[in-house]
Amino acid sequence: MANVTEKEIISYLKEKIKTIQAEAKKYEDLLNAFSGSAAPSKSAKQTKDNILDAVIEEAEDTSAKGSKKKADAKPAKGGKAAAHKALEVPAEYTPDLGLSGKIAFALNEIGEGFGQDIANAMAQYEPQSDPDKLFKQIASVLSNLKAKGALTTVKEGRRDKYTLAK
Score class of each variant (00 low, 15 high):
52 L>S: 06
77 K>S: 11
61 D>K: 15
63 S>D: 09
60 E>P: 09
66 G>K: 12
69 K>M: 03
74 K>H: 05
73 A>M: 07
46 Q>R: 10
54 A>Q: 11
54 A>H: 03
63 S>A: 09
60 E>D: 10
43 S>V: 06
47 T>F: 04
72 D>P: 04
66 G>F: 15
70 K>Y: 00
45 K>I: 08
76 A>S: 13
43 S>P: 03
64 A>W: 02
74 K>A: 12
74 K>G: 02
51 I>K: 00
72 D>C: 01
50 N>C: 01
44 A>I: 04
45 K>D: 15
73 A>S: 05
62 T>N: 15
61 D>V: 04
59 A>V: 11
75 P>D: 13
45 K>C: 10
62 T>D: 15
77 K>P: 07
51 I>Y: 01
58 E>S: 15
52 L>I: 07
53 D>F: 00
44 A>Q: 02
47 T>N: 04
68 K>N: 15
58 E>I: 12
53 D>A: 02
77 K>E: 11
53 D>T: 04
66 G>S: 06
68 K>L: 13
60 E>I: 08
77 K>H: 01
68 K>C: 05
61 D>F: 09
57 E>D: 11
55 V>I: 15
56 I>V: 15
63 S>I: 03
53 D>R: 10
43 S>L: 00
64 A>L: 05
72 D>A: 09
75 P>I: 01
68 K>G: 08
70 K>G: 07
70 K>H: 06
66 G>W: 15
73 A>C: 08
76 A>G: 06
66 G>M: 14
46 Q>T: 09
71 A>H: 04
57 E>A: 14
68 K>F: 05
75 P>W: 00
74 K>E: 15
59 A>D: 09
45 K>T: 12
56 I>S: 02
43 S>Q: 01
47 T>K: 05
46 Q>V: 00
71 A>S: 14
77 K>G: 12
75 P>G: 08
77 K>A: 09
66 G>A: 06
54 A>K: 05
71 A>N: 01
75 P>F: 11
64 A>H: 10
62 T>G: 12
48 K>A: 10
70 K>W: 04
69 K>E: 08
72 D>H: 08
50 N>K: 07
64 A>R: 13
47 T>M: 08
54 A>V: 05
64 A>T: 13
46 Q>W: 09
58 E>P: 01
52 L>D: 01
57 E>P: 00
43 S>Y: 08
58 E>D: 13
75 P>A: 10
54 A>R: 01
67 S>P: 00
67 S>V: 07
76 A>D: 13
60 E>T: 02
58 E>Y: 12
66 G>N: 12
75 P>T: 14
63 S>M: 13
43 S>W: 02
44 A>V: 05
64 A>F: 03
47 T>H: 07
43 S>D: 14
43 S>F: 02
77 K>F: 01
72 D>S: 11
45 K>S: 11
47 T>L: 03
70 K>T: 14
56 I>W: 04
56 I>T: 09
54 A>T: 09
55 V>T: 12
61 D>P: 00
52 L>H: 11
61 D>E: 14
43 S>G: 00
60 E>K: 04
65 K>I: 10
57 E>G: 10
60 E>N: 13
63 S>R: 11
44 A>R: 12
65 K>G: 13
74 K>N: 14
49 D>L: 04
55 V>H: 07
52 L>W: 08
60 E>S: 06
48 K>G: 10
59 A>S: 15
64 A>I: 02
50 N>R: 03
57 E>T: 14
49 D>P: 00
76 A>H: 01
65 K>N: 15
